[in-house]
Nucleic acid binder design. Structure first.
Lengths: 126, 126
DNA sequence: AAATCTATTGACACAAATAGAATAGTATGC
DNA sequence: GCATACTATTCTATTTGTGTCAATAGATTT
């Protein structure tokens, strides 16, 4: 019954290493875009934010990788932090104009999928 | 702006070949389980059903592969149709007891993700 | 100066997705 | 009775995504 590939969360474990359904990682991109629209942040902060959103199982390197990928696509831009308070230099990411456009498309996707999921849940019960 | 990898639907195209967000395919498994709980069906019928559910961009081979994978895991079982009405022999899939259990886990996942998505949408607007 | 915390990157193995071709039976029109 | 179109499923090659772990590295605490 436990599953590897598409695996869903089996043991509630909160730290990355616990498995998650493919759904969780599917909304990582829009989640990051939304957080960056609210305000520019650096990766490490975003890590904490997505935990708050209930996506605690996602591994940090996945988040960093996604951020760099989105920068490559021009959805976000980053600069090295100047007044660094602690630790090594860190990238501050911010949403670009193109990123805002992409976010609108993502909003439609999320709405569409919200409907799909609620339709499915209705069908389980009724 | 168009995207390949995680790509989302760019041009509303209804036939497979049109792109979809990773979200769409993430709910293929539970969707199939739900449909098979309602009644046993064969792959080709399921293809049509998931189209009705709004997941029209998923390629047939993905559906067939997923069905066989779920059979390997013991979630569904198939038999060759006896009174075949048209075309070549076809597999009738049906949900197993284990499949019902898995579906319950999936229901929780869907509910959890429904909440995540509605939280995200709230954050976009407000 | 060693350990610990903050912060990011790189690399590798493996799982999954896409598209398209291959296979194959059935029904219809000519 | 043969070509064409439709139903139905499987296989394979290529690409992309995911998970995990190690590496790097500055800052702070002991």
């Amino acid at each position: 019954m436990p599953r590897h590939g598409r695996g869903w969360l089996m043991g509630e474990g909160s730290n990355y290493g616990g498995h998650h359904s493919p759904l969780t990682i599917s909304i990582l991109e829009p989640a990051l875009l939304i957080l960056l629209k609210e305000q520019p942040r650096h990766g490490y902060t975003l890590l904490g934010e997505i935990e708050t959103l209930g996506m605690s199982t996602i591994h940090p390197s996945v988040v960093y990788r996604t951020l760099r990928e989105m920068e490559r696509l021009g959805w976000v831009q980053s600069d090295w932090d100047i007044d660094q308070t602690q630790g090594p230099p860190r990238r501050i990411y911010r949403l670009t104009g193109q990123g805002e456009e992409v976010l609108q498309i993502w909003r439609c996707e999320l709405e569409k999928n919200q409907k799909m999921i609620s339709d499915l849940l209705k069908r389980i019960n009724g």
